[in-house]
Design a protein around this nucleic acid. Sequence first.
RNA 1: GCGCCCUUAGCUCAGUGGUAGAGCGUUUGCAUGACACGCAAAAGGCCGCAGGUUCGAUCCCUGCAGGGCGCACCA
Length: 713
Amino acid sequence: MQEFSSKYDPKETEEKVYETWEKSGFFNPDVCVEKGVTPKNAEIFSMVLPPPNVTGTLHIGHAFEDTLQDIVVRYARMQGKRTLWIPGTDHAAIATQSKVEKEILKNEGKSRHDLGREAFLRRVNEFAKASHDTIVRQVKRLGSSLDWSREAYTLDEQRNFGVRTAFKKMYDLGLIYRGDRIVNWDPKMQTTVSDDEVEWLEEKIPFYYLKYGPFTIATARPETKFGDKYVVMHPDDERYKKYKDGEKLQLEWINGPVTATVIKDPVIDMEFGTGVMTITPWHDMTDFEIAMRHNLTMEQTIDLNGRLLPIAGEFAGQHIKNARSVVAEKLQKKGLLVKTENNYTHRVATNSRGGNIIEPQIMKQWFVAVNKPFRSGFFKKTTLKELMREAVASGKVRITPERFEKIYFHWIDNLRDWCISRQIWFGHRIPVWYKGEEIYAGIEAPTGEGWEQDPDTLDTWFSSALWPFSTLGWPKETKDLTTYFPNSLMAPGYEILFLWVARMILTSGVLLNEIPFRTVLIHGIVRDSKGRKFSKSLGNGIDPLVLADTYGADALRMALIIGAAPGNDIKFDEQRVKGYRNFSTKIWNIARFISMNKPESADPARVDINNRREIQELAALKKEVTAYIESFDFHLAGEKIYHYIWHTLADKIVEAEKKVLRDGSEQEKLTSDALLEKLFLDSLKLLHPFMPFVTETVWQEFRPGTILMVEKW
RNA sequence: GCGCCCUUAGCUCAGUGGUAGAGCGUUUGCAUGACACGCAAAAGGCCGCAGGUUCGAUCCCUGCAGGGCGCACCA
């Protein structure tokens, strides 16, 4: 055994240890089988890393997420399971594109159009590659035991083939369609975004009461109402009983006389405002639905750049955000403004990627139909919505903590068709070609002249949705797919339960007639010490690598895990990392103590210690820790083992050993030493999933040539 | 509006149907065969409020208050 240095330096040792693991090949379950570490018929444990976006670097939330997973994976591996954990990264279409666009604009004053599609994409890919390399380095630094030989990227060749295949299959089933529907349009980024990517922000604005013929209507957005020619009220509203559904009225409006039609619809809230409103179906989701129900004509008022169209008369060409006050002014001049309420709380739709205001538009886009019945071998006749619900309701997929199942169902109930086409360049090109009126959807381009591919790309979540099986080689019937699918576990944060988890269940159900994973372990968000989210604008970011370098990745892992009950947010406090750094040192010093005081003739095999109380105590602890890990209560498991090592093993047993060394007989010394070493090494095993680096380092000092990572639990 | 969660020691949080635990912090000793990133000890809590179930509730139920979040969306 080597001499233990007086101080444990995590920074120095951790990188070396990771190299040892990588060289061993044991991150790859097939190597474990080949080398006889894992039996061929061992139970399977498989998982895919939620792929980090290639938009820069990892933050502390990734460190938390990766640690959770690494604990499960290391535990499974030590349990003797055939354990696979696949790494990868996500191209994150819109997020990455907008990041690069901003950078190029800032540094070179050029837009993506100045560069052109091809040159711009080259730039984005370069950026993505650099981010990827940084991310991989970071993930390794934190100790994640991933099988790098199977690394995937949501935008690589293999995954692109999967995306095209998925699109084609769902198109053939009638589950992907092209249609004119209202979508969330970001005029600044010039693209649609899905409902789940819209973020509603509150703002205080004036609320206008306007004279609309015999009615008074209330609105927060007079600047959109030029084309309003339907006036809607509740069928049971006594106040407006004398107006009949479909009745036509002549009235004076912003730019002159219009013919208005009365519509009766029960969505109207009689209590709100005056109980009457006019509708703008082209630019409002609710209005659009009313118009669809009553088969009304719809007219565009705002163009795709956010400017008013000729329908606005004298205001045509004005940007929508400047129009409100001038339109209100004109209304007042015409005597149409009844009153203004100030300080009205309004919710504005913004794009969560970039924060621009959303102006809904009716556009021809590609959608996934969630309410359309279709036939599917396993699920019989169903809809995607039912399929998603059924997978969880039946218990085939278990979401834990359980409360997230309720949230999941609630979301499904309110789900609308998913808009999957984006007008950005970076991403999977939609596998559809046009020639005049002809449309061709296929995995490969059609033969023949004159076909032109759809210029749009797919929502990034469309490719992420395939992740649990695209990483295993689907659509090819690979050995990996038959061996490792469905995945045992998936461990995402609750903020992507809908964006991602639900959609993986969807695609897997349609394309493979199977659930993508058996268990979903949901975790919370890491917040700063004041409870705020980490964000660039607040500048409160903490670099996990700086922490790992200062205190050790082990310490960072412990600080993130202990005190974090499943699914709960955690407030991050650097003090805690420091505390667990001290614990690493403690372990190092126990090792030092044992090696310094080892009797010359020590041979553990010669002494029988099986009946010792301490052995049974540790066995009981092992049982407890195991149960906690099995139930995903890592915070309890980690605390237990931490407490045992420090306050029992070090404080009690090591102290007792000192007495034996001083006063005991030769035989007592041998027994005591054997006992101590056994207890120490066994507790290292229990701690290994949590603090893989110190435990491995110390283990290899005591058991040269072996690797703790693949020792039996 | 519908739904989910939280309220426990100064701080951050675990936890259990039998009147409570950790880390950090605080106080007091201590250079004791590894460790001051340490050792030994201590102080500190009507477990948000009000009812109910129970032999017994911090834990289960109901209501209330405060805080957080999700969905829907109010024109």
